[in-house]
């Protein structure tokens, strides 16, 4: 059984203008020790889907359905519909998170020692000094020099990269089996990004964690992920191993996304291949494929099908799935 198994997850927000289907029935599995990248642009639902089963979306106007099961020390548990107090015990213990902007993600008024210790105290009934030792151990592990002294420092006294290291240390305080990294390097400079990605990869090997890497950057994904899920307008549109996806992308959106990325490994060409049009508004989705208005290959599908019928996720080859009418009936 998979470590984390997401099945038909749906997230709907009630807004004054109507229901928004932010996540529209996604399913995926995450295995122990692997890195799954979830790639998509803003509004694709890549972040929301993970915040949803963590119970971190604002309550009230949000409807979450589907099933998310997690293997824990006490056997499998269903996260959707869990009591707030029970899901709290999972958060930060079995599943930990790091976020995009480490400046705003750390409380500006408390020392980092305080913030690390309370992460440990929330799940362990131990003396504060024990948690403090653990904090020093992890800060040293993520590369913060003079960890013991630095416990008293405040977030604003660290650089952006160091803050993200502190966030990582905080996430690892309780030895989580899953680490969700939500755009962990987007706010950082490229040279710092390289450091942080390497750190995450090293720690993952050391602790055999599963990492869910949420990002919009296909460059980051290529170096870090084992498998990739591409999301568009709340749906999973392509899923494959990282090598397969970059070598043989199927869904025209994935193809376009790969073409849009400026690449330095290729000879200096003059133009990027852009995807025409704008990302869709989730309020105004038609019955057809959400990507159809921007798709350059929809004329290849007979009978205007792309505009009228939403395609299903179909298997292209072993472990490679794509949501596109182009490949219907062409698979083995």
């Amino acid at each position: 059984m998979s470590l984390l198994s997401v099945h038909d997850l749906r997230v709907e927000f009630a807004t004054p203008d109507g229901i928004v289907k932010a996540v529209d029935g996604i399913s995926f599995d995450v295995e122990r020790g692997e890195t799954l990248a979830i790639v998509g642009e803003s509004g694709s639902g890549k972040s929301v889907s993970n915040l949803a089963y963590m119970g971190l979306l604002p309550k009230g106007k949000t409807k979450i359905t589907g099933s998310v099961t997690l293997e824990t020390d006490n056997g499998p548990v269903e996260l959707i519909g869990m009591e707030p107090e029970d899901i709290r015990k999972i958060r930060g213990k079995d599943i930990a998170m790091i976020f995009q902007d480490p400046m705003s993600a750390l409380h500006p008024f408390y020392s980092i020692g305080d913030q690390l210790v309370e992460a440990h105290q929330a799940h362990n009934k131990v003396e504060k000094s024990v948690s403090q030792e653990r904090a020093i151990e992890l800060l040293t592990l993520v590369g913060v020099a003079d960890a013991k002294e630095r416990l008293r420092a405040y977030p604003h006294q660290f650089s952006g990269g160091m803050r993200q290291r502190v966030m990582i240390a905080m996430a690892l305080m309780n030895n989580p089996s899953v680490l969700i990294a939500d755009e962990p390097t987007t706010a950082l400079d490229v040279t710092v990004q390289a450091q942080i990605l390497k750190l995450i990869a090293d720690l993952q090997k050391k602790f055999k964690m599963a990492v869910i890497l949420i990002t919009h950057d296909l460059g980051v994904v290529a170096g870090a992920a084992d498998r990739v899920n591409v999301m568009y307008a709340g749906k999973l549109v392509e899923s494959a191993s990282v090598d397969e996806l970059y070598a043989k992308p199927k869904m025209p959106y994935t193809v376009g996304l790969l073409g849009s990325v400026p690449r330095m490994d290729r000879p200096h060409e003059d133009r990027l291949t852009a995807i025409p049009g704008q990302p869709p508004s989730l309020m105004k989705l038609s019955g057809g494929c959400a990507f159809a208005p921007r798709c350059t290959r929809k004329s290849e599908v007979p009978g205007n099908k792309c505009e009228t019928t939403s395609p299903e996720l179909i298997q292209i080859s072993t472990g490679h799935y794509s949501r596109c009418h182009l490949y219907e009936g062409k698979t083995k």
Binding site: L56, R88, R91, M97, H107, A119, A122, M167
Partner: peptide, 17 residues
Amino acid sequence: TEDYIRTARAKGLSEGL
């Protein structure tokens, strides 16, 4: 609605804290 409150929640702190 601040990010650091979301972090606190993601750490598994109780609502009271």
